[in-house]
Nucleic acid binder design. Structure first.
Lengths: 212, 212, 212, 212
DNA sequence: CATGAATGAGAGTTCATTCAT
DNA sequence: GATGAATGAACTCTCATTCAT
C-alpha cells in the first residue's frame, strides 16, 4: 500500500502549480482534490500529506500567484527613474500579462475571491487547521492590499507630480483593476490581438483618462 | 399530500426571481435546488415541474437579468436626441446601477458566466432536456452579444461623429464592461460613495479616455 | 434515480429499531450509516431524509431505549401496594431483562454513553443540526437522570421505611446499575442460566446487601 | 533522515504505556496510531518496527494492564493468613483503585473488551501477523480467565469455609466485577467520595450480600 | 531504527434528480 | 402541480499500512 518510490517526489510547490492550473480550468468549487491530485500523479489522499485542507491548499495557490505579481509590480513602482505615466503603463502590462499567460492564480483571482471573503473555514476541522487557514487568509488579504496599494501609489504620486488630474484614487484604481482582471474572462489565445496589444490599448486608455 | 392551498400557485417568473436572489447570495455552485425551492415555499422536487433542470433554470435567470438591462440600455442608445458622449455616460450609469442595486442577475453575471461557457450540459439527461438547455444557452449568448453590441454601437458612432478618438472598439468596450462588472465585487452598501457617485466617476474616466 | 415505490415506506421508527440492532452488534464507532441503511434496505443517503446526522440518529436510538425501560420501571416504583424490597427485586428484573432480551439500546447503553458525554457534535454542521443534537442530548441525559432517580427513590424510601439499612444511596445505586449493565457484556443466549435466573440471583444479592 | 538523536530509543514498554494513556483518553476506535506515536515522539510508521499491527499493539496494552492487576490480586489471594472475607474486601479495593487511579488499562478494559471478542483480525494481513494476533488474543483471554478465577476462588473457598452463604459463584463474581468496572464510568476525581471510600462502601455491600 | 511520502479502503455527507401517490 | 421518499454519484477527509531512503 505504498508506491511512488524512485520517481522524484512531489513537492508542495509542484502541487501548488498543478492546483493553479486546475483552478484556472474549473473554478474554485469545480476544483476537486482528485483533479489536483491527478495533475501531479497522486491520489487525493496523498495531498493531505502536504496540505491540511482543500481550502488551505487553494488559498495558498492564490496567495502564491498574487505574491508573484506583486513582486514584479513593486520593482516597477520603486524605480525612481520612471515617470508615473510610464509606471502606470508598465504595471498595466504586467497585470494583464499575468491574466493572459498562464501565471498561476492570475485567472483564478478574478472569480474566486468571493469564496475567501465569504467563507468560514470548512467545518469540522481541528483548531490548528483553522488557525492555519486564518493565517493564510490574513496573509492573502495583506498581499492583496499591498498589491492594490502599489497601483494607488502610482496614481497618487502622479497626481502630486501634476502628471495626472485629480481623481478619486480608490475608485480609479478599482476601475483599472476591474478592466485588467476582466481580460482573463474574454481573452483567448490565438485571438485577433495578443496580450501585449491588448495591454497597450488599455494602458493608453487609462493614461488618457487621467491626463490633466 | 399536496400543499400550497390558499396562496395562488407559483409561476415560472416567481421561481426565476427567487433563484436570482439565491444566486446573488450563494453563487452558482453554492446555489442548491433546495435553496431556490425554499425561497418560494416549495420542495426541490416541485421545481422540476417548471424547469427541466438546474442548469436550464439558472440559465433562464441570467438571461432574464441580462434582457432586463439590455432593454433599458437599448432605449438610451436609440434615443436620437442624445450625443454619443451623453449616451455613454447614461449606459454606464445604468450598468453600474444594475450591479449596486440588488438587481439579482446583475451581480450573478460577473461570476457565473464561466459556468455557462465551459459547461457541457450535465451528463445523463434526456435529449430533449439537452436541446432545451442548448436553446437557452444560445438565447443567453445572443442576448449577451446584443448587450455588448449596444455599447459598441455607441463607441463606434461616437468615433464616426468625431466625438471619440479612433480606438479598438471591441477592446475598449470589454474594458468598460470589465470595470463596471467589477464594481459588484467591491461595492458595499453604506460605503464611502453611493452607486451614483461611483458611476459618475467611472463614466467621466471613460469619456475622457475616448476624448479625441 | 428513485426506487422503493410500492413496498411500504420505511419510517423513522423502523430506522431506529434497525439502528439499535446494529449498534448492539457493532458499537457506536463501529456502526456505519451504510450498516444501518442495509438493515432497512435503504442506501446510506436515504437515511439523511429521516435524520440530519449520524449522531442525531444514534442519540435518538439511545434515548428511545432508555425511555422505554424508564417507563416500565416507573410504573413499578409508583405502585404503592409493593414494599420497597419487592420493588427493588422487580426493577432489577426489568433492567436485566432489558439487557438480555433484545430491547433496543439496552446493550448499547453500557458502552456508548462515553461518546455522548465526551463528544462535541461532529463538526461542520448547520446550526439547526447542532441545536437538534444538543436538544436530543439534553433529552437523553434528562431521561438518564430520571432513570437513576427511580432506583434511588426505592433505596431511599426503603431506608426510611426500615426495610433497608442506611447506606450511601448514590454509590449503592451505581453499584446495582453497574452489575446489571455488565450482564449484557457476559450474557449469552443459550448459556447455563436464563436471564430470569440471573436476575433472580442478582436481586437476591442486593436485597441481602441492604438488609438492615 | 533519522531523528531521535540524543534521547535513548523508545522501547516496546514505552509505547505500551503511551498507548494505554491514549486509549484511556480516546477509547479504542478513537485511538489512532498517530496519536500513540505522538505520545512517544515518533511517527506512526515507526510504531510498526515494534508492533506488527494496531490490534496487536492495543491487545498488548490490555494484556499488560490486566496482568498487572492480576499480580496484585494474586498475592492477596495466596496469602493464607487472611480470611476470605478479608480477601474479598482487599481485592475489591485493588480492583477499584485500578479504575479510579490512572492505571490505564483499567479503564480501557471496561469498554474495549468487546472489540477483542468480536473482532476478526483486520483483513489483508500476512499469516504471521494473524498468528501473532491470535497468540496475543489467546494470551489476553487466558489472563482474563485467571483474573476472574482469582475472584471465584475467594468466593468458593469462603463458601467452603462457611464464611459465605452458598451462591452461584460465576454469577456473583460477574456481578462484583461489573459493579467495580462501572466505577470507572462514573467516578470523577475531586468528586464527593474518594476511590477508597467508594471501594469501602462497595466491599461492605458484597460482604453483606454473601453473609451466610 | 526512523521517517516522509504515498496509498486503498472506506466513512459521512450533499445534491440533483426521479417517481408513485 | 406538489410532495415525500429514495437513489447514485461525487466529494472531502481519515486512517492503518507500506516501503525506499
Amino acid at each position: 500500500m505504498a508506491r511512488k518510490p524512485a520517481e522524484q517526489a512531489v513537492s508542495r510547490e509542484d502541487i501548488l502549480h498543478a492546483a493553479a492550473e486546475v483552478l484556472r480550468r474549473n473554478g474554485y468549487e469545480g476544483t476537486t482534490m482528485k483533479d489536483i491530485a491527478a495533475q501531479v500523479n497522486l491520489t487525493a489522499a496523498s495531498l493531505y500529506h502536504h496540505f491540511e485542507n482543500k481550502d488551505v491548499l487553494l488559498l495558498a495557490v492564490l496567495e502564491l500567484g498574487l505574491r508573484y505579481v506583486a513582486r514584479e509590480i513593486e520593482s516597477i513602482v520603486n524605480d525612481s527613474s520612471l515617470t508615473n505615466v510610464e509606471k502606470l503603463r508598465r504595471i498595466v502590462h504586467i497585470h494583464i500579462a499575468n491574466q493572459t499567460e498562464n501565471r498561476p492564480a492570475g485567472v483564478a483571482m478574478v472569480y474566486e475571491v468571493r469564496h475567501i471573503v465569504a467563507q468560514q473555514p470548512r467545518g469540522g476541522l481541528s483548531d490548528e487547521t483553522i488557525a492555519e487557514y486564518n493565517a493564510r487568509r490574513a496573509s492573502f488579504f495583506a498581499e492583496r492590499r499591498r498589491f492594490e496599494a502599489l497601483f494607488q501609489r502610482v496614481v497618487r504620486e502622479g497626481i502630486a507630480a501634476g502628471e495626472f488630474r485629480p481623481v478619486d484614487v480608490p475608485v480609479v484604481v478599482k476601475t483599472i483593476l476591474g478592466a485588467n482582471n476582466w481580460v482573463s474572462v474574454w481573452y483567448s489565445e490565438g485571438g485577433r490581438l495578443s496580450g501585449e496589444q491588448i495591454a497597450e490599448e488599455i494602458a493608453e486608455l487609462f493614461v488618457r483618462a487621467l491626463h490633466p
